[in-house]
C-alpha cells in the first residue's frame, strides 16, 4: 500500500507572494532565473512586465502578484523569475516567466493529502485552483497555472484564500 501512495505523489514547487504560499507542479517549471533587467513592452496589460533575453530567445515575463490581485512584486534580493511552460490555445507550448517574491522549496504532495478547492466565494476563482495542501505551518494553494495565465483577467486569488483561512 505504501508504495502505491508514493506513486501518486507529485512534486510541487512552493513560492511566496506577499505572505501567501502557492504551489505549481514542477513538471511545469523549466528553470528558475535570478532577477534581471526586464525590457518593458509599452501599452501591454499591466500584469505583463515585459520581455527578457533568455539564451537568445525572447521570454515574456508576468508579474504574478498583479495577475493574482495582490499588488505588485517588489524587487528584493529574493525576487526571482520562474520559467514555466504552459499549454496555450491549439495545444501550443508557451514559455513564460513569472515574477515571484521568493521560491521556498520543492515538496512531495500525495494525492490523498490534497484538499478539494474551496467552493466558497465566486465559482470562477476556484476553477483556477487544483486544491489546497496543509503543511505544518502553512496553507498552500495548488494552482492550475495554465488556466490562470491564459485568461486576460486579473484573478483576485487571495480574497478567496482569506475566506478559506477564516473558515
Amino acid at each position: 500500500m505504501a508504495t502505491k501512495k508514493q506513486q501518486k505523489a507529485d512534486s510541487f514547487i512552493i513560492f511566496k507572494l506577499k505572505n501567501e504560499y502557492f504551489a505549481i507542479n514542477v513538471k511545469k517549471v523549466i528553470r528558475i532565473l535570478e532577477m534581471q533587467k526586464i525590457t518593458e513592452v509599452p501599452e501591454s496589460p499591466i500584469y505583463m512586465k515585459g520581455v527578457i533575453n533568455i539564451r537568445g530567445d525572447i521570454l515574456p515575463v508576468l508579474d504574478s502578484r498583479i495577475k493574482f490581485g495582490m499588488g505588485e512584486v517588489e524587487i528584493t534580493m529574493t525576487t526571482c523569475i520562474l520559467v514555466l511552460k504552459i499549454i496555450g490555445s491549439n495545444n501550443k507550448i508557451i514559455k513564460i516567466g513569472i515574477l515571484v517574491d521568493n521560491v521556498d522549496e520543492v515538496i512531495q504532495i500525495t494525492e490523498q493529502n490534497i484538499l478539494p478547492p474551496p467552493n466558497i466565494g465566486e465559482a470562477y476563482k476556484s476553477k483556477y485552483i487544483i486544491g489546497m495542501y496543509n503543511d505544518d505551518k502553512k496553507l498552500i494553494m495548488l494552482l492550475d497555472i495554465d488556466k490562470l495565465l491564459l485568461t486576460n483577467e486579473i484573478i483576485y486569488l487571495n480574497e478567496n484564500k482569506s475566506e478559506i483561512v477564516n473558515v
Binding site: 533587467k37 525590457t39 513592452v41 509599452p42 501599452e43 501591454s44 496589460p45 505583463m48 520581455v51 527578457i52 533575453n53 537568445g56 525572447i58 515574456p60 508576468l62 496555450g88 490555445s89 501550443k92 508557451i94 514559455k95 513564460i96 495565465l149 486576460n152
Partner: peptide, 22 residues
C-alpha cells in the same frame, strides 16, 4: 513576442542587440 503579447499591436517582434539587451 509570443502569444502573451498578442493583444499588443504596437510591436511586430523583438531583436537582441549586441550587448544582449532587447
Amino acid at each position: 513576442l509570443g502569444e502573451m503579447f498578442s493583444s499588443n499591436k504596437n510591436f511586430s517582434g523583438a531583436s537582441i542587440l549586441g550587448d544582449s539587451s532587447i
